[in-house]
């Protein structure tokens, strides 16, 4: 089989190692990043201290987009090749993405009030981000509550494909339409408009968020594998 490396028996021994390594380094790294984000990094020239909200808002938003991208990829893979083990993978990612989308929306509105003068507006970026959160919710519901596995997979694939289109809408919303939300600052092509003194805490926090996602993912995946092996015990 082409997806043999995804089999639980190959992955399981790495899970424990991964979990212990990440849980050992994440706490010191979190404190270091927080010191940079809240104390060392400078104020913004117009936004003052509110710019510090960026250090949780942006990583959370990026990671939630990345999680949905991964889910869509895995879901489509499962649908096309009927690989059972990829189901465990996307089930383990979805709750992380949901939590992060909630964080991105709430911190975003806490950033909006002191800068824009409002907690919420219905502009293209904010609305499409809210839609993403609902996509996560429906996605989780449809694998939790649809007991027919075949049907559940079809529904999940449908949601993830539509959600994938929404993902591109989120990404490009600030460029296509006039929005209250500012356009992107960190560009792969072109000049990044975040000063290096702020880019450092931002990338540190991004790494912290990434490690956190990896940790939760490994723990959730391990739980799913044990759940399956537990069923297997009865059949020996």
């Amino acid at each position: 089989m082409m997806f043999k490396f995804l089999y639980p028996s190959h992955l399981f021994s790495f899970l424990n190692k991964g979990i212990s390594i990440i849980s050992a380094i994440i706490i010191p790294f979190l404190f270091l990043s927080l010191i940079f984000a809240l104390l060392i990094s400078p104020q913004d020239y117009i936004q003052g201290d509110t710019v510090r909200i960026m250090y949780v808002h942006v990583p959370a938003a990026w990671m939630t987009l990345m999680c949905f991208g991964m889910i869509s990829f895995l879901c489509i893979l499962t649908f096309l090749f009927k690989t059972k083990n990829t189901i465990l993978l996307y089930k383990s990612i979805a709750p992380i993405g949901l939590s992060l989308s909630l964080i991105a929306i709430i911190t975003g509105s806490l950033w909006g009030e002191p800068t824009w003068g409002t907690y919420w507006v219905w502009d293209a970026r904010l609305t499409s981000m809210l839609v993403l959160m609902f996509f996560y919710l429906i996605f989780i519901f449809s694998y939790k509550f649809i007991s027919n596995q075949n049907l559940s997979l079809k529904v999940c694939t449908g949601i993830s494909v539509i959600g994938l289109i929404n993902l591109f809408i989120i990404k490009y919303s600030v460029n296509i339409w006039p929005t209250l939300h500012q356009t992107e600052s960190i560009k792969i092509i072109g000049r990044t408009t975040v000063d290096s003194s702020m880019l450092l805490p931002l990338s540190m926090m991004l790494l912290v968020f990434f490690l956190y996602c990896a940790l939760i993912f490994l723990m959730k995946y391990k739980s799913e594998v044990i759940r399956i092996k537990k069923k297997g015990l009865k059949k020996i």
Partner: peptide
């Protein structure tokens, strides 16, 4: 208020 995408000290 709409602020731009520039962040600097």
């Amino acid at each position: 208020a709409k602020h731009d995408e520039n962040y600097m000290p």
